[in-house]
Computed example of a mutant assay.
Amino acid sequence: MNLSSNYNWEGKVLLVAEDEDFNFIFLEEILMDTHAKIIRAKDGQEAVHLIQSAPQMDLVLMDMQMPIMNGYDATREIKKINKNIPIIAQTAYHYGEAYEEIIAAGCDDFVSKPIDICSLKEMINRYLF
């Protein structure tokens, strides 16, 4: 699959929980052509609040290392609110290092940073449809 693969997620709402501006801008740019609505949370606590106040979210991209409330705790809280929302962890760890902890927290899947754009879009598409 190439970078120009067309995904049309119009009508879908993705919550990107990411405290680093550069990382959020990168994700926003690569997801822009999918026509999904992108909402940002700058920490885990804000992510939980947004899920509580906007239950129409379709998927969460969760950075695991954030201030105020980390991605592990935020995932646990979000799954209490909506156990069916897919949460994809974004982590600097590679497979095996924190995988068990990420899955135990309630994440459905994960991507390692640096993020492979094609793999991320394929993964999101699987969870949305």
Rank of each mutant, 00 (worst) to 15 (best):
K121V: 00
C118Q: 08
E97Q: 10
K80H: 03
K79F: 08
N125R: 03
K83Q: 13
I103N: 07
I124T: 06
M123A: 12
D116L: 10
I102F: 08
K80E: 15
A105K: 11
R126G: 11
A89G: 00
Y72F: 10
I85Q: 00
I78H: 00
P86W: 09
A105N: 14
T75N: 07
E101M: 10
I103C: 06
A104V: 02
R126M: 09
A104N: 12
I102S: 04
C118D: 13
G71S: 01
A92T: 12
A92N: 12
E97K: 15
P114K: 13
K121P: 00
I88S: 07
A104T: 14
I124G: 05
G71K: 03
D116W: 05
N84H: 12
T91W: 02
N70P: 04
K113W: 11
D108M: 06
Q90D: 03
Y95M: 15
Y99C: 15
Y95H: 15
T91D: 09
D116G: 04
E97M: 15
K80Y: 02
E97C: 13
G106W: 00
G106N: 12
Y72C: 07
A98E: 09
I117Q: 04
A105F: 00
I115T: 15
D73F: 05
E122N: 11
I124N: 14
L120D: 02
I88E: 07
E100C: 11
A89W: 03
I103H: 00
M123K: 14
L120E: 01
T75K: 02
T91R: 02
T91N: 09
I117R: 06
M123E: 14
I102M: 15
R76D: 09
I81T: 03
K83N: 15
N84L: 11
T75D: 07
F110P: 12
K121G: 02
N125C: 04
G96S: 07
K121L: 12
I102A: 05
I103F: 09
D116C: 06
K113G: 08
M123R: 08
R76C: 10
E122G: 06
Y99P: 00
R76M: 11
C107E: 05
P114R: 15
K80V: 05
Y93C: 06
V111N: 15
E77M: 03
I115P: 10
G96Q: 13
G96T: 08
M123C: 07
D116M: 14
G106C: 03
I88H: 07
V111F: 07
N70W: 02
T75R: 04
I103T: 01
C118S: 09
K79E: 05
E101D: 11
A92C: 05
G96P: 01
P86A: 05
I103P: 05
G96M: 07
N70A: 13
P114V: 14
I88L: 14
I87L: 08
K83W: 11
K79G: 02
I88M: 15
I85N: 01
K79D: 09
C107N: 06
I102N: 11
I81F: 03
G96L: 11
E77R: 14
A74F: 03
A105I: 02
H94K: 10
I81S: 01
K80W: 01
H94S: 09
P86Y: 12
G96F: 10
S112I: 11
I115L: 04
K113N: 05
V111S: 08
C118K: 13
K113I: 06
I81W: 03
I85W: 01
P86M: 06
I78T: 00
N82L: 03
